[in-house]
């Protein structure tokens, strides 16, 4: 089954590429929102590339299922990879939404940057898992996901009672999108455990 193994390896590498693309989009999103048009253009470009790569991964996975009729871990990998891939595409969509906001540097920018930093850590944890190291991943993701929830609540709490200007609305939605990205990464982590160990876990 060398041919199948080669295909699985190719799909795994494509998934890693998509993972890194979406991490890059998230990393650039806030900078773009702080009125950097060049960076915003970069995020738009990444989002389009991610759409294409997501479609490639789906096609490659479906072809492997149809041609090799895989079972057990191979089947779990191929069926799950399509969902992981769709999730990364969704993350780049959310990053682009953030990038399209217009936010000036203010007291909430630091808080958004802190959320972004937590998400980037989560990306690194999930990347290690894709490459086979799932040790402590669940706990590491849960603690960061909880922190993101709290950070989002802090931002929303800070904005409540104040004027709901266009900028404040952008900050609020950015916080919500970041929190959502954290949720999606946690779900991806749970699905990687399913691929490797065949058991379903919840990371939330």
């Amino acid at each position: 089954m060398k041919v199948l193994e080669e295909r699985l390896e190719k799909i795994k590498n494509e998934l890693l590429e998509l993972h890194r693309m979406s991490k890059n989009a998230v990393e650039l999103s806030l900078k773009a929102a702080l009125n950097d048009d060049v960076t915003r253009y970069q995020v738009e470009k990444i989002e389009k590339q991610a759409d294409v790569l997501n479609t490639d991964i789906e096609n490659d996975s479906l072809a492997a299922v149809a041609l090799f009729q895989p079972v057990a871990k191979d089947l779990r990998f191929l069926s799950t990879v399509m969902r992981l891939s769709g999730n990364y595409e969704r993350i780049t969509d959310l990053a682009l939404k953030i990038a399209r906001f217009s936010i000036s540097d203010n007291e909430f920018t630091e808080k958004l940057l802190a959320m972004q930093a937590v998400i980037l850590e989560m990306f690194d944890i999930v990347e290690r898992a894709i490459q086979g190291d799932t040790d402590r991943m669940r706990d590491e993701l849960i603690s960061r996901d909880d922190r993101l929830d709290m950070m989002k609540d802090e931002i929303i709490g800070g904005l409540l009672g104040g004027e709901l200007s266009q900028e404040n609305l952008s900050i609020l939605l950015s916080a919500i999108h970041f929190e959502r990205i954290g949720d999606i990464l946690s779900k991806n982590g749970a699905r990687i455990i399913f691929i490797n160990e065949g058991r379903r876990v919840w990371i939330k």
Partner: peptide, 17 residues
Amino acid sequence: IFEYPENELTERYITGR
């Protein structure tokens, strides 16, 4: 057996390895 085999040898056999 075909989704979550207990034995590694089973997994290796059914996945053609």
